[in-house]
Each structure stands twice: as C-alpha cells, then as structure tokens.
Simulated assay, not measured.
Amino acid sequence: MTQPIVVVGAAVLDGGRLLAARRSAPPELAGRWELPGGKVERGETPEQALVRELREELGVTAEPVARVPGEWPLKPGYVLYVWTARLVAGTPEPLQDHDELRWLTREQVWDVDWLDQDVAAVEAVRAAWQPLPHHGAS
C-alpha cells in the first residue's frame, strides 16, 4: 500500500484567536473556510511545508508550535495533519487560493462554514487550544 500524500494545515493562533481562510478555488470549495496549508513536497518535513505554505498563501513567516493530535482523511490518497503555529513576522493576506481571512475567538470558531474535512481538525484544535502570546508581544 502506498503512503498517503500528507497535507499540512496551520492552526495559526494569535492573541487567543484562530486564523480561518476562505477558499476562492477550486470552484467546488470556493466560499468555504479552511485552515491554511497545503501538500508536503518531496524532501520537505511537514513543518517545513507548513512554513513554506504560509509564506506562499498568506505572505507571513510562521513557526510551527505543536502537532495537533489526530489525522484526518481528505480525498482518497491524502491525509491532513495539523500543527498549531504562531506568527513570527508579517500580517496575513489572502495571496493564493483564498479571498478572505478572518480571526476567530474560541466562541466564534463555528461562525464560518468550514470545509467538511476541516471540521474534525478544527474540533481537535479547539480542544487543544492553548492561547499563544499575541504577535509582536515579547
């Protein structure tokens, strides 16, 4: 059996808020929300992929903090792993695949229409949620 392709998702936490990204593509996913991230490329660790994807998709430098327990199947042959991450530099902007970003408090997490495959991951993130220092705080 072949190994599944790993997709990394970032639970970017900043000052007690979680970053959600609204998909603009592909059409079947457009308008729904996800944790930003993407596929791990050959020769990359999942943590390296997370840093690269956040730079490409959101224009920020981020640091993986901890893996969220669990793995979630995506389309056949793909599996989602999620890390909490903190911003190191930059302000997130929707550069690729997204048309809107929103910071959500714990109480607001379910105010957006998450992609089906992200719902269980977001539940796990919410269960493991430890407030990280606000970006820019020492």
Rank of each mutant, 00 (worst) to 15 (best):
M1R: 13
T2Y: 08
V6P: 00
V8M: 05
G9Q: 07
A11N: 02
A11G: 03
L13V: 12
D14E: 11
D14C: 08
G15I: 12
G16R: 06
G16Q: 13
L19W: 10
A21F: 04
R23S: 03
A25L: 02
P26K: 01
P26W: 00
E28G: 05
A30R: 02
G31R: 09
G31L: 05
R32L: 14
R32S: 13
W33N: 07
P36V: 15
G38V: 07
G38Y: 07
V40C: 13
V40D: 03
R42P: 14
E44A: 02
T45H: 04
P46R: 12
Q48E: 15
Q48W: 03
A49Y: 01
L50K: 07
L50M: 05
E53K: 13
R55S: 07
E56N: 00
E57T: 11
T61R: 09
A62I: 04
A62H: 11
V68K: 10
P69H: 04
P69S: 02
E71A: 12
E71H: 08
E71M: 04
W72C: 00
L74F: 04
L74A: 09
K75Q: 15
G77T: 09
G77F: 03
G77D: 02
Y78V: 14
V79L: 08
Y81A: 05
V82N: 02
T84I: 01
T84G: 00
R86E: 14
V88D: 03
A89G: 12
E93H: 14
E93A: 15
P94K: 02
D97P: 01
D97F: 08
H98C: 04
E100C: 01
E100P: 02
L101F: 03
L101R: 03
L101W: 04
W103I: 06
W103P: 00
W103K: 01
T105K: 08
T105F: 13
T105L: 14
R106H: 07
Q108E: 12
V109I: 10
V109C: 01
V109M: 14
D111L: 05
D113S: 11
D113T: 13
D116I: 11
D118H: 06
A121I: 04
A121S: 04
V122Y: 05
V122E: 09
E123M: 13
V125S: 02
V125D: 08
R126V: 15
P131D: 12
P131N: 10
P133Y: 15
S138D: 11
